[in-house]
Design a protein around this nucleic acid. Structure first.
Length: 269
DNA sequence: TCCTTATGTACAA
DNA sequence: TGTACCTAAGGAC
């Protein structure tokens, strides 16, 4: 689940469920017990997201910094909360709702300056209104590194993960191995605009869909389908299956320990 | 029941 | 580049 859209959606959901209310805070698993005890009974004031980082604000200057990593999951449910399983790192609860966090890479209590330091090392996030796409392009346009690697580098652009990377490069006909310095300003503008729209829709729907209306199975006269991860996509996890546009087999390769997917015919070097 | 895999990142060598 | 970390689902037996 967790690319930037998931985290921004979680920030909204945490705020909608708990903001301005005193919350019971526990760590059934025991790895966050001391911090949970400190926060227990205080007010959740705000929830903020930057890229794949989630920040829950308690009181005036306490932040819980959460990063889901590859496996982290968050589940909301109505009160009364069931007995927690022993993998629940963090549970928030009030009289109407509970929410459990499992398997995060990070769940830590941090200060204002520590939070600021995280913002400072992250690149612009298409889902944040203050984002500056030119800052990302300055790095990309000077780099011999491939655009596929740059899009996953959170210092360059925050929030893009393996699915949005594969899909946005397909949508713009760009070979993932093209060096960043060969991406034109017009191409970058189009990629950024597209990511903004796709990720906003991802927040709305809580899933990643990237197939244009004219390319849906219905529009193409094909049987309906659901891709493996729950959304509808062009190339992600479709290795060796025919490209929806040209029919060529979708290619896959290892890049920095992640699976890359692309159509060698539709995407140009 | 075991094995593999996954929308991520940090750190060591 | 490799490895460690965190969890759960799905598929092979």
């Amino acid at each position: 689940m967790p690319e930037g859209h998931t985290i921004h959606r979680l920030a909204k959901d945490y705020a909608a469920a708990f903001a301005r209310t005193a919350v019971r805070v526990t760590s059934p698993q025991g790895k966050f017990t001391d911090s949970a005890a400190l926060l227990d009974g205080t007010v959740l004031t705000t929830a903020d997201a930057h890229g794949k980082h989630l920040f829950l604000g308690f009181g005036d200057h306490h932040w819980v910094h959460i990063h889901l990593g590859l496996f982290g999951k968050v589940t909301f449910g109505p009160a009364p909360a069931p007995p927690p399983t022993d993998t629940v790192r963090l549970r928030l609860a009030d009289d109407t709702t509970y929410v459990d966090l499992r398997g995060p890479t990070t769940c830590a209590l941090i200060t204002d300056p520590e939070k600021q330091a995280i913002h400072d090392r992250l690149g612009p996030d298409p889902l944040r209104p203050d984002a500056d796409p030119a800052a990302a392009y300055r790095r990309i346009s000077r780099s011999r590194t491939t655009i596929a690697t740059l899009l996953m580098d959170q210092k360059v652009i925050a929030g893009v993960g393996n699915v949005y990377r594969a899909e946005v490069l397909f949508r713009h006909g760009i070979d993932p191995y093209r060096p960043g310095k060969d991406i034109t300003p017009a191409e970058w503008d189009a990629i950024w605009q597209d990511l903004t729209a796709l990720m906003r829709e991802g927040v709305r729907n809580n899933r990643i869909d990237t197939v244009r209306p004219e390319h849906t199975p219905e529009a193409m006269g094909r049987p309906p389908r659901v891709d493996d991860h729950g959304g509808e996509v062009y190339v992600y996890r479709r290795a060796n299956r025919p490209c929806h546009l040209c029919g060529s087999p979708v290619r896959t390769a290892d890049l920095a320990a992640r699976n890359l997917f692309w159509c060698p015919a539709c995407q140009k070097r």
